[in-house]
Every structure is written in structure tokens, then in C-alpha cells.
Design a protein around this nucleic acid. Structure first.
Lengths: 248, 248
DNA sequence: ACCTGAACACCGTTCAAGT
DNA sequence: ACCTGAACACCGTTCAAGT
């Protein structure tokens, strides 16, 4: 188990403590790193303070000198992942596309780390890595000509949707067998089942569900990217319609 | 503690068992009812199989004769709440407004039951009460003139956003003190703190956050309804833009 | 068929005691 | 100042035993 890869980035006011050659001093960063690795491997469900401590060669009680609670540890884990989100440069000529690209990048990062969408959804991010992401997001939105009011409201809508849909995707993908290796095939098997279930409902009470069984399930050929692109389209067109209104 | 209110609606194929006057026979419905009451009172965090059993005057092991797991119990609880969602009648002339009204109703129901948004977010609803809601939602959307593809994709976007934003609202509202009585005042105190934090960031690295401190936090006067109405506007205008495109 | 007590294998967190 | 073992007060779920 290589837990020396991914060097901890230098923290603001690094707690260097030069004269101290002890094997590996415990720190909040090290603890968050171990927790993230554990979540990536086995999911949040399997995360416990005892398991984190074990990976660091100590006992659970020792973690509490650096981290106030499991909740706070998860704050650190989410913020650590936020560092990976790339925000596109502002482009006034095609700001809708920059909004879409930002949301795509955000989703890709969440998909790369098991269960992080679910954890991120449950907190309001104010960590040191989330801050620059928000800063750059605002730069991008302010190039759009939207009013300050709308620029102030949009980032929450965007982030919330990305968190929620990525979380939902993991549900779909884990729905067949709860193991770590859910394939697209499993998702589609589930979608086909659902389609057939809808199509078999009583005509008198569920005419629309019967009729829409195929469109609701992409005819058993679910493409998460297509669903996501649809939502991007709705959100960006909605923002553009508001922008057009505000100009008038 | 009145736990005889809210009569259990007759289940498809009612398990009546006429000749049996025992005090109160255990059933999945009764268990879900007790769980919902417990969640309404103390939140999901406080829900345990032991507490549910205690409320029903039995032991935790007895629940497993009627409910496969805590997860399945939560499925039942969510579906029970879905019965409260009112879907507006289709109105081809103003379908955008019907979509908004449906989402408002959905949010109101989730807000009326503590932590249900968070529980609903974690599952794909296919229960007997969710089904009619989806059926009526489709009726409403099909009156819009949108293509089948879009009608098939929209309900997920709508429900997902309502679940996510309602969940986020409970986070904000519980952020100050974790007690059950979070007031709007608490939310606004938090918003003011956040605004002042943004406004005090270093100008060179965070010019946009500084400038947008007020719009991002509604100037410390957060109105959850306003945030929600903004999102409704974005989503409905987005759908309308797509409808216009499809007509052309 | 349904219900039960007791047990299994865990939790997050605290705290007195050590260095 | 930091770390530790042991304990506290819980969990979800299983299972042999009862009726």
C-alpha cells in the first residue's frame, strides 16, 4: 500500500518544525490524506476513525489532537479534492460555454473520487481550496454581462446541481451489486428493468408512464453524459434568457 | 405522544387479517410511521432500529420480520412522504408556471419533514406513492409541446434540484447551533459572517470575491425563497428556450 | 409464522495516565 | 505538547430459542 505518493502541498504558514526527524509526525493534512485514500478505495461507508488511525499506525484517539471530529475530517477531505477543479478562463464572447466547461470539470473531479459528491453535498465549502475556485468562477460569470444579483446566485445553483447529479450517478451505478466495480452495463440493465416496469403499468392509471417508458430510461441505454449535457443546456440557456432580459 | 393520528392509508392488497384483535400487530407500515415520527422529532441522525422498536414497544430484532434493513425502512419513509406532494393540473397555455408550482409544492413537503430531503436524495424513488407523482408530472410536461426526449429528461432534473436545494437549506439553517430550532435569524447571522469574511479577503488574490461579497450572501439578508425562485426561473426559462428551438 | 434476548462485530468520542 | 489504552454509550444485524 503506497501511502507516500501524492506529496502534501505546502500549507499556508507551513508547520515545518525543522528539528524533528521522527518517522512521520501526525498532522491534519496527513490524516485527511489517509482518509481520502480510504474513501477512494472502499467508500465513505467503510470510513471510520479507527481505520484511518490504523492506516497511520496509531490509535483512533490520537487523531483527535489534530482534528476535532469526523465531520471536520470530512470537511478537510472535500476541500482537498476541490483543489483539483480547473476553472476555465473568462470568455465574454462565449461565457455559456465556459460555464458548461467549469461544470464538466467539476463533475469529472467528483467522479474521480468515490463518494466525494455525497460528502460535498452535505456541507457548505469554505475551505482554502474551495475559495480560489469560487473566485475564478465569479471572474468567469462577471464576464457574462449578468447583473451582480444573478452572478451572486448562480454559483450555488451550479455547484449544487453538479454535486447532486454526480451523487445520483453513483447510486445508479451501485444499484445492481453494491461492490466497487459497477459497470455501465449494470446501469443499463437497471434502466431496461425500469423501462419494462413502466411499460407494464395499468393503462388506465398510468397512461403517461407507459407512453414515456422509453424516453424516461433512454430506452434502456442510459448515457450519464447525455443526461448531464441536457441539464447544462437547460441551466445555461436559462441564464442566457435572464441575461437577455436584463439587457432589455 | 399521539402515535395513532394519521391513519395508515389502505395498502394495495390490504393485509387485513380480520380475526386478530391483538393490541397492534407489527407491520411495515406501522414501522415506517414510527420511523417518520422519530425523524420529524429528532432528525435522521437520531434514528436507530432500537429507537423505532422502543416506540413500538418491542425489540430491534422484531423489526426485521417486516423490513429487510434500515435502508429499506428509509425507502418506505420517503415514499410515505411523497404521498403528500400535490401535482398541478396540466395547463398548456402556461406550462412553465405549472412546472414551477410543482417544484414549489415538492419543496414545501420536504421542508415540512425534517431531513427527508437528505434521505430522498440518496435513493431513486420507485415506491407506490412516488409513481402517481411521476405520472402526473409527465402529464403536465407533455402539455408543454416539448419533445419526448426532453419530457423524459426533465423530471429527474426537477426532482434532483428540489431535493438538493432543500437539503442545503437545512444545512444553512442548522449551521449556527445544531439544535432543532434554527431560526431565519441564525441563517442571516451566518450570511453576515460570510459576507464580512469575503469582503476582508486580500484584494490582489480575491478581487471578485471581495466585490461580490454582498450579492453572494444577499447582503446578509438571505431569503431561501428568493434563491429557490431564481433557480425555478433558470430551469423553466431553459426548458422554454429548448421548446422554442424544437418548434423551429 | 412471528417474536425475542443475547450476542457479534463494530462505531465516535472521552479521559486519565503516561512521556 | 502530544500520544495512548481502555472505557462509555451506543450502532445494524443475526440467530438460536421460544410460542
Amino acid at each position: 500500500m503506497p501511502d507516500d505518493e501524492r506529496p502534501v502541498p505546502p500549507r499556508l504558514q507551513g508547520r515545518s518544525r525543522a528539528g524533528r526527524s521522527s518517522r512521520r509526525t501526525l498532522s491534519a493534512e496527513l490524516i485527511a490524506e489517509a482518509a481520502l485514500a480510504l474513501i477512494d478505495e472502499d467508500g465513505v461507508e467503510a470510513l471510520s476513525m479507527r481505520r484511518v488511525a490504523e492506516r497511520l499506525g496509531t490509535g483512533a484517539a490520537s487523531l483527535y489532537a489534530h482534528v476535532a471530529s469526523k465531520e471536520e475530517l470530512l470537511d478537510l477531505v472535500v476541500d482537498r479534492v476541490m483543489a483539483e477543479v480547473q476553472v476555465p478562463a473568462p470568455d465574454a464572447a462565449d461565457w455559456g460555454e465556459t460555464v458548461k466547461q467549469l461544470m464538466r470539470n467539476h463533475r469529472a473531479v467528483l467522479r474521480a473520487h468515490r463518494d466525494i459528491a455525497r460528502i460535498a453535498l452535505a456541507r457548505i465549502p469554505t475551505g482554502p481550496n474551495a475559495l480560489p475556485v469560487l473566485e475564478q468562477t465569479l471572474a468567469l460569470l462577471r464576464a457574462s454581462g449578468l447583473s451582480d444579483r444573478v452572478v451572486g446566485l448562480a454559483p450555488d445553483l451550479m455547484a449544487l446541481y453538479v454535486d447532486a447529479v454526480t451523487f445520483e450517478e453513483t447510486l445508479f451505478e451501485g444499484s445492481q451489486h453494491p461492490g466497487p466495480e459497477a459497470t455501465l452495463e449494470d446501469v443499463q440493465a437497471f434502466a431496461r428493468e425500469l423501462r419494462d416496469f413502466f411499460a407494464a403499468l395499468p393503462e388506465d392509471r398510468y397512461p403517461n408512464l407507459r407512453a414515456m417508458a422509453a424516453p424516461l430510461t433512454s430506452d434502456g441505454n442510459v448515457d450519464p453524459d447525455e443526461r448531464f449535457e441536457f441539464a447544462l443546456d437547460v441551466i445555461v440557456r436559462g441564464l442566457q434568457a435572464i441575461a437577455a432580459d436584463e439587457r432589455a
